[in-house]
Design a protein around this nucleic acid. Structure first.
Lengths: 162, 162
DNA sequence: GGGTGTTACTTGAAGCATCAACCAATCACC
DNA sequence: GGTGATTGGTTGATGCTTCAAGTAACACCC
C-alpha cells in the first residue's frame, strides 16, 4: 500500500507541533523544579487532588486525570508520600483500591507553587496567543484527544467517585 | 503581585494541551519502537540527517533542528553509532566541531520506517483535523515557538552549514 | 604570543519513565 | 461456595534524559 506523504502545510504544522511537544515539558519542569522542587507532573498530581472532593482520589481516577499509566503514578505518589505531601490509605468501599489524599503540607505546597506556575503558563503559552487562537487550540486538542486517548476523555468529563 | 488566574476558556485549552503533550510522545514512541526499534527522537534525528546535504550535519546544528540539548543528542548519537546507523568524524573546517553522517544502513532504516511513521502521524493527528485546523495549528505553534525557543527558530529557518 | 573567554562536544552520575511481572481483592457464573 | 477471569495496584529492572563537570579548540586583544 502506498503512503500518503505530507504536503507542505501538513509538514509545516507537524514539525512545529513536534517542536512544541519537545520543548514545552522542559520549560514547565525547569520553572517548577527551581521554584518548588516539583516536576510538572508532580505539580499536576497535587493540583488534581487539591480540586477533588476531600482532596482525595482513587489511584486509577488520578491516573486518568493526569493522563498517566498506573505504574508511573504509583512511583510518583510513593515519592510524594515520602515528602509528606500525599498520604495513601485503602479504600473502604473496595478492598482492591487505594485512595490518595493531599496532606495539609501538600495543600500548602500547591498554594505556594500555583502563582509562579500560572505565571509561567501565561508567559510561555496563553499570553502569546490571541483569544481566537486559545479557542482554536482547545478545539484542536479536543479533536486530537478523541484519538490519542479515547477512553481517558471520559475520566476528565465524568466525575469519578473515589 | 497578584496572580491573573486562568478563566474558563483558558483553563480548558490548557488542560487539553497538557494532555496532548503528555500522550503524543508515547503514541509515537510505541509505534516506532514496535516497528523499527527506534525512539521517536531517534527517528527524528535520522530523518533530519537524511534531508541534509551529504546526509551530514554538525552536532550543534542537529541539536537545534531536533529541539534537543547537546548532551542528549550526544548520548543518542553514540547509541545510534553503535548500531551503525550514524558515523561521526571531526569537522575539517573547525577542529572543535564534529559531524554526524547517516550511514547507508541508517538511510535504509529511515526509508523502511518512514511509511509506518507517516501513517501514525496521519491517523493520530493530521487526519483528525480539517484543513483549516491544520493551518491554525501551524500558526499557533509558530507563536508558541517564538517564546519557547527564541533562538532555535533560526536554526530551522536558516540552513546551517556543517 | 600568552592570557581570557567562548564555543563545541563528551562523559558520568542521578532521577524519572516504562515495561513486564507480580500479588491481592473482587466479580461472574455455574 | 468454589473456580476462573478481571480489576486495582505495586515493584524491580532497564533505558533514556538531565545536570554538572570536564576537555579541547578557537578567537580576541593587549
Amino acid at each position: 500500500m502506498d503512503t500518503r506523504w505530507l504536503d507542505e502545510g501538513e509538514r509545516a504544522a507537524w514539525l512545529r507541533l513536534i517542536a512544541v511537544v519537545e520543548l514545552l515539558p522542559g520549560v514547565l519542569d525547569t520553572q517548577l523544579r527551581r521554584d518548588a522542587h516539583l516536576t510538572h507532573y508532580d505539580y499536576f498530581v497535587l493540583a488534581m487532588l487539591s480540586e477533588a472532593p476531600d482532596r482525595t482520589l482513587r489511584m486509577t481516577a488520578l491516573a486518568l486525570r493526569t493522563n498517566a499509566t498506573l505504574p508511573r503514578l504509583s512511583h510518583v505518589v510513593r515519592r510524594l508520600e515520602g515528602r509528606d505531601l500525599i498520604e495513601r490509605f485503602p479504600c473502604p468501599e473496595d478492598g482492591r483500591a487505594t485512595n490518595a489524599r493531599l496532606t495539609p503540607a501538600g495543600w500548602d505546597e500547591v498554594v505556594a507553587a500555583a502563582p509562579g506556575h500560572v505565571e509561567a503558563v501565561r508567559s510561555h503559552v496563553l499570553d502569546v496567543l490571541n483569544p481566537a487562537q486559545v479557542t482554536q487550540l482547545q478545539q484542536i486538542c479536543d479533536a486530537l484527544l478523541t484519538r490519542l486517548d479515547p477512553d481517558g476523555l471520559m475520566g476528565q468529563l465524568y466525575d469519578l467517585r473515589r
